[in-house]
C-alpha cells in the first residue's frame, strides 16, 4: 500500500516535472511592456529622462538640427568648449531646467551666436509633460536631473501651446514676408536666397515649380502632398502655421513665394 502511494505520487510528480522541464528548456521570453507615457503624477526622474530621450531622438525631431551642429548647437556633445548641454546650462543664472524649459517654449529668448533663429516653439509639437521630459533628458547629459513632477504640475497652468489654443496670434503683426519667414522659423528648413537648410524644398524658385494654391495648401496642410525628393522628411513640417499666421500674413507669404521665380 505504501509502495503504491509512493508510486502514484511519483507518477504524478514526474508528469508535472516533465511539463515544467519542457517549459524551462525552451528559451525564455518575457513580453515587453510598452512604456506608458504617463508623466503626470508620481513620475520619477528616470522615467522622464527615458521618455525625453525617446522624444529627442525620435518623435520630436530635435536631432534634425541639434544633432548636426550646423543649424543649431549640438546638445549631446561638446559645444564651444563648454561641454554637453547638461554641463553648460548650469552656468545659467536662472537655473538649468528653467533655462532649458524657457528656451524650448520661447526659442527667441536665448539665441546662440552663429546660429539662425529657426527653432520653433516646442509647444507646437509637444505636450507640457513631454517638454519637461526633454528638459530632464538634456539635463541628464552631463548634469544632474532636477526636473520633478512638481515642475510639470506648476507649469501646467501656464498658457498652453499656441497650437492648441485655436487662433493664437502671430508673434508680430509684421507684413514683411522675409521677416515672417524668419520669425516663423521657415528658413530653418527651407532655403531662401541660399540661406537656410535643405530639409524642405527651397523657397528659391518655388514660384516656378508650383502654383500659389499649392503653396497655400502646403503651408496649411504640409502632409497633403510631399514634394518629390523630400519624402524622407514628410511629417517634419508642423501643421500649425495655418493657425499661427493671420489670413493676411498667410497670403503675403503665399504671394511672396509664388513670385520667387
Amino acid at each position: 500500500m505504501f509502495l503504491t502511494n509512493i508510486k502514484v505520487l511519483a507518477v504524478g510528480l514526474a508528469v508535472i516535472a516533465f511539463y515544467t522541464i519542457i517549459a524551462q528548456v525552451i528559451p525564455q521570453l518575457e513580453s515587453e511592456v510598452p512604456e506608458a507615457l504617463d508623466l503626470s503624477a508620481g513620475v520619477t526622474p528616470e522615467v522622464l529622462v527615458t521618455a525625453g530621450e525617446d522624444l529627442f531622438m525620435g518623435g520630436a525631431g530635435c536631432t534634425s538640427c541639434h544633432g548636426l551642429g550646423t543649424r543649431a548647437p549640438n546638445l549631446r556633445t561638446d559645444h564651444a568648449g563648454e561641454g554637453t548641454i547638461g554641463e553648460r546650462c548650469g552656468s545659467r543664472e536662472q537655473g538649468c531646467k528653467e533655462y532649458l524649459y524657457e528656451s524650448m517654449i520661447d526659442p527667441g529668448a536665448y539665441l546662440i551666436e552663429g546660429f539662425p533663429p529657426i527653432m520653433p516653439d516646442a509647444r507646437r509639437q509637444l505636450s507640457n509633460e513631454q517638454i519637461w521630459a526633454v528638459v530632464a533628458y538634456l539635463e541628464s547629459l552631463g548634469g544632474e536631473v532636477t526636473v520633478t513632477a512638481d515642475d510639470i504640475g506648476a507649469s501646467a497652468s501656464a498658457p498652453s501651446a499656441p497650437a492648441s489654443s485655436g487662433a493664437a496670434p502671430a508673434r508680430t503683426a509684421t507684413t514683411d514676408p522675409v521677416q515672417l519667414l524668419t520669425e516663423n522659423a521657415c528658413i530653418g528648413c527651407h532655403q531662401l536666397e541660399g540661406a537656410g537648410a535643405p530639409v524642405g524644398p527651397a523657397f528659391d524658385g518655388m514660384g516656378s515649380r508650383i502654383s500659389a494654391d499649392r503653396i497655400r495648401t502646403g503651408i496649411i496642410d504640409p502632409e497633403a502632398e510631399i514634394a518629390e525628393g523630400y519624402e524622407a522628411f514628410a511629417g517634419m513640417m508642423p501643421a500649425t502655421f495655418g493657425d499661427q499666421l493671420s489670413a493676411a500674413q498667410l497670403e503675403i507669404i503665399v504671394q511672396f513665394l509664388a513670385a520667387r521665380q
Binding site: S31, E32, E231, A232, A234
Partner: peptide, 23 residues
C-alpha cells in the same frame, strides 16, 4: 520590433526613413 522579436539582430532597416507611405 517588440521584445519577442529579440535578439535584435534583425537587419531590417527602418524604411520610414527612406520611403513614403505610398511607396
Amino acid at each position: 520590433l517588440p521584445r519577442e522579436g529579440t535578439p535584435w539582430n534583425s537587419a531590417m532597416p527602418v524604411w520610414e526613413d527612406f520611403l513614403t507611405e505610398d511607396e
